[in-house]
């Protein structure tokens, strides 16, 4: 098969659809996460999922030893562990009176460390060795099946619906939590919904991008979109497009070179989009700023002779 045939092969199209959907969901969710100034929360959620995935695998293997691995069960385990990680971070911050960045770093590394320990136990067991749990760390988009695409599609549609419904409530919470509370909005519930969406995206993206790098897909596209627009609507759309483009690029690369780490390619693609945006962004791009400065300098050097 030549390269074009590979790209348009059925399996490849499934992989591309999956990564693209993931990119859209992550771009939208990430925009709110960035506005809430919780960039690191995505990282904590991603890392904290690992022990959950490993424990879920071990429990499932002991209940149904013949069944091998079950993706939904492992994703459920990942979600539970991510939620525990976030709750532990909140508890440490409130009770321990520790600074937020230290709390995030502590939780992230502790959960990930525990995950790696559990993973080595899994790898030592005969079923675990072929289970390919390592793919959850760095991602393997080629492993995406049609059932995964259905899951990703429902998460993406859910993300689009919820963010459309809650755009003004979430924007208010992110901009001025004090006013939102005075107006009587249930901040805990709104916050919980946003974090639940982040967990869903992280866990769903674990297989394709890997839990180490999923945070990049949540953070880089929204950051890039800020160089093009100063309002939330366009930011959400652009961020979704940037997420989709980076994720699809990673999917294509993964299809062409089977051994390539998909997550890493996706992150590099997102970084290219970001650099492009920093330079050429139509709102805050560097080129725009250089030009404006040059015009100002020229005007200052040659005052109009009236």
């Amino acid at each position: 098969m030549n390269k074009l045939e590979v790209i348009f092969a059925y399996n490849t199209l499934i992989v591309l659809a999956g990564t693209m959907l993931l990119g859209i969901a992550a771009g939208i969710t990430g925009t709110f996460l960035m506005l809430r100034r919780r960039a690191l929360a995505g990282d904590v959620i991603g890392h904290a999922a690992l022990p959950g995935v490993a424990i879920a695998f071990l429990i499932y293997a002991s209940i149904a030893p013949e069944a091998g691995k079950s993706l939904p069960v492992m994703l459920l385990g990942g979600s539970v562990a991510s939620a525990c990680g976030m709750l532990a971070a909140l508890w440490l911050r409130n009770v321990g009176r520790l600074p937020e960045d230290a709390v995030m770093a502590i939780i992230l590394s502790t959960f990930f460390g525990a995950g790696v320990v559990l993973l080595s136990i899994v790898q030592a067991s005969p079923t675990g060795a072929q289970a390919g749990l390592r793919d959850f760390i760095f991602g393997q988009a080629a492993a995406i099946r049609i059932s995964d695409v259905t899951l990703l599609a429902s998460i993406t549609i859910g993300t689009i619906l919820i963010s459309n419904l809650l755009i003004k409530e979430w924007a208010l919470m992110c901009f001025d939590e004090g006013l939102a509370r005075v107006l009587g909005y249930p901040i805990r519930t709104l916050d919980f919904l946003l974090m639940a969406l982040v967990v869903a995206v992280c866990v769903a993206g674990m297989q394709a991008v890997g839990l180490l790098l999923i945070v990049a897909l949540l953070i880089i596209p929204p950051t890039a979109s800020r160089f093009w627009s100063d309002s939330i609507g366009p930011n959400l759309c652009l961020s979704a497009v940037f997420g989709a483009v980076s994720a699809t690029a990673g999917g294509i690369a993964s299809a062409l070179v089977p051994k390539l780490s998909t997550g890493a390619i996706i992150v590099v693609a997102a970084a290219v989009v970001l650099i492009f945006s920093i330079l050429l962004g139509s709102k805050h791009g560097l080129l725009l700023r250089w030009r404006a400065r040059r015009t100002m300098r020229d005007a200052a050097r040659n005052p109009p002779t009236a």
Binding site: K168, L179, D230
Partner: peptide, 29 residues
């Protein structure tokens, strides 16, 4: 029946909204 004007420094002024958007927030309820 009660309105609150927080300290100006309590919010992030780089937030992607216009003056009009911010005023509209007072109407959200």
């Amino acid at each position: 029946r009660v309105s609150y004007v927080p300290q100006r420094t309590s919010v992030d002024w780089d937030f992607p909204v216009t003056s009009l958007d911010v005023v509209c927030m007072g109407l959200y309820r």
